[in-house]
Design a protein around this nucleic acid. Structure first.
Length: 198
DNA sequence: CTTCAGATGCTCT
DNA sequence: GAGCATCTGAAGA
């Protein structure tokens, strides 16, 4: 159960996105860890990707975090009420990141803390619809882990938010176009979404 | 199962 | 002022 180091993140973004599948994302609040298994990711690469906030090395207040060292959390508000969690990759001054889109709880205790944060109830009180759609979206994932823009810029090498290799190697990884980037012209067709059925 | 409208605030032009 | 890397509940098939 080794915590991933900077070397893991400081590589090609596509590779990092693929290899994050099956890893455990750990969020610690008040000393209590909650873990989920990562099941869906997307790559965003500013150098060449019109879907990336930092396309063409565009530097604004928001994209500043994408220029931080690999292994930094990039978290932003979307649609006025949800948050998206990303991991910065590929070297300093090379704005690129992996979006964390979905996961599943690792243990029963993890399921409990996340169901409380998401629905203010226990897992057994969740509807079957809620159970089926528990963590299958970036906004849901952030809510379940109590992540907001307050945590933007947090290092993944610290103790509040990090990823561990639990030795799981998912088979049958699916690849597709990315979700919700219809504005991105030719980049809408880039096959940079990775996921598997846990 | 599917579609659909509405919520809501921040960022950039 | 426009638009957004989304989610939910309600309604219909």
């Amino acid at each position: 159960m080794d915590k991933l180091t900077r070397d893991f993140y400081d590589r090609d973004t596509i590779v990092v996105a693929r290899e994050l599948l099956g890893k455990h994302l750990v969020r610690v609040v008040d000393g209590v860890p909650t873990a989920l298994r990562i099941t869906e990711t997307e790559a965003y690469i500013g150098r060449m990707d019109k879907a990336c906030h930092a396309y063409g090395y565009k530097r604004t207040k928001r994209t500043e975090t994408l220029f931080a060292p690999p292994g930094t959390a990039y978290i932003y508000l979307i649609y006025g009420m949800y948050h998206c969690l990303n991991f910065v990759t590929e070297g300093e001054n090379e704005p690129a990141a992996v979006l964390l889109r979905a996961g599943v709880p690792v243990t029963g205790a993890d399921a409990l803390s996340m169901s409380v944060r998401r629905f203010h109830c226990t897992p057994s009180e969740m509807s079957s619809y809620q159970r089926k759609n528990f963590l299958n979206g970036p906004g849901k994932l952030c809510k379940a882990l109590s992540l907001t823009k307050e945590q933007n810029g947090l290092s993944l090498l610290g103790d509040e938010l990090y990823v561990v290799d639990a030795g799981e190697r998912p088979s049958d990884i699916h690849i597709s176009k990315r979700i919700g980037i219809d504005y991105a012209e030719e980049a809408v067709d880039f096959p940079w979404r990775f996921y598997y059925e846990p």
